[in-house]
Design a protein around this nucleic acid. Structure first.
Lengths: 261, 261
DNA sequence: CCTCTGCAAATTGTCGACACTCGACACAGG
DNA sequence: CCTGTGTCGAGTGTCGACAATTTGCAGAGG
């Protein structure tokens, strides 16, 4: 059958692709889930995945376990794995934690930031402004994410970095198109500019405060429109469908979207 | 000989123990590592573990993968899994993150705390005071952990709770006996009392601030005694065992699989 | 005496197969 | 007509075995 449906993994860490099989499966599924090609509620059958990917159930199982440990899928001891869905409440929770984490990151990073890094931050903000003007939401989000990740990365705290990565990974699936889309992009750029100003001034506390407020904005929006599934992309309701909706065949779209730092 | 080397899993979730095999292995190894019976650096051979536990390599492998996802062990793609060690720097990092998390938890929890929960906090503090007087460090730590976990739990933020649990799990192995041991216990109780006072007063901000300072105390100590391995590794428990740096077998059962499970 | 290279052992990565459990459907009874 | 129960099917959980790769050692060469 269709074997080796893998796309290439753009990971230029310097090491060549010496990844084991289950690692590749893990990355593949991770990408698929984060890209929302496997919407929440999708049942991931081991045999189906195995056949689809051209490997045996071993690596698939291992990758699924890893995915479950990351919280991207949920396994019920005997009933297989489903792509986990975040409720609006959990999404708000994640925002709260993210605020705490990035606030800490800002406090730690500001005294450590090298001039070159500040310039990179500036470049990200400028790109955001440009993308906002263009209306290129995808690119805007990328630059936005790069901005935040650079701050977290510059904190020098790898534990913090890891937790933040995990958190953003969970939240990343829910592009809040209808939410932040409208006029908030420019506002976000303005907030980033203010944060960057505080960073340049070396005022870690102010930068952290501004960053906290900045993150709290979508959080507020969520609270206002609570319980409504404003954000969730694909519906997973109708739990009593006549038949299961499998995804036995998943195709590699070839979108080499590197999530790497 | 009953070769099932599993100990009791103190987990009374109310549901009966329908755990799968790899889950039991996972819990077992987790307990062993957290109890420092498997010190950092120990190489965990799959076959050795499998034979020792009376299962095949499958569940062992799965459990090891899960453990690696939690950060308790580190696997090198072809060279097996070792119990991961936290450097002093990582330990300090974890404290920073923990401070941010628990501070957030306090802010969220204070307005939500039911009177009964406040009383439970009080009970924990009282028990800590008693244990500190007795010099019962183990019990003291338990009550201490219960205090902090209750605050985190009362925040109502399950994401936060999960991250905190994970973090504490990583840090839990390093009982800082020689550090916090001496006169710091009573001081810790005093700080907890102050926090509890702020909680009773409904002053979330003050409680959060005090909690942050409280957590920052061991952090400061670590910075002072930086680079020294003051804390790391376990105390001298079980010195009667032969020296083992690389011990693949953790149980010398020798008996073949006897009773059916 | 030191170093490089080839072989061998050991251990992990992967695979296919079997048993057991859970879910669903159909049939019989009230 | 509704409900309880028995059976069938699907799918996971687990096991044993094979193969690839890495590590260590031994021997030869410089």
């Amino acid at each position: 059958m269709g074997n080796s449906a893998f796309a290439m993994d753009g990971e230029a860490t310097g090491k060549l692709e010496n990844l084991t099989l289950w690692e590749r499966v893990h990355r593949h599924l991770r990408e698929e889930i984060l890209a929302n090609r496997l919407p929440p509620g999708t049942v991931l059958g081991e045999v189906a995945l195995a056949e689809s990917l051209g490997v045996s159930r071993g690596p698939v199982r291992e990758a699924l376990g890893r995915l479950a440990a990351e919280g991207l899928v949920t396994v019920r001891p005997r009933r297989g794995a489903v792509v986990s869905a975040l409720s609006a409440g959990e999404f708000r929770e994640a925002y709260q934690v993210r605020e705490a984490l990035e606030t800490l990151a800002a406090r730690l990073a500001v005294p450590r930031l090298a001039p070159a890094e500040v310039e990179r931050l500036q470049a990200f903000v400028d790109e955001q402004a440009k993308r906002a003007e263009e209306g290129n939401v995808e690119r805007f989000f990328q630059a936005n994410q790069a901005f935040h990740e650079l701050i977290v990365s510059a904190s020098g705290n790898r534990t913090l970095q890891e937790m933040h990565r995990q958190l953003v990974g969970h939240m990343g699936r829910y592009r809040m198109r209808s939410l932040v889309l409208r006029g908030t992009l420019k506002r976000s750029v303005g907030e980033h500019r203010a944060i960057l100003r505080a960073i340049r001034a070396g005022d870690a506390e102010k930068a952290a405060h501004l960053l906290g407020e900045h993150i709290r904005v979508p959080q507020r929006r969520l609270e206002e429109a609570s319980d409504e599934e404003v954000v969730l992309t694909s519906a997973e309701d109708a739990p009593h469908l006549p038949r299961k909706r499998f995804v036995p065949s998943l195709r590699s779209g070839g979108s080499h979207e590197g999530d790497g730092s």
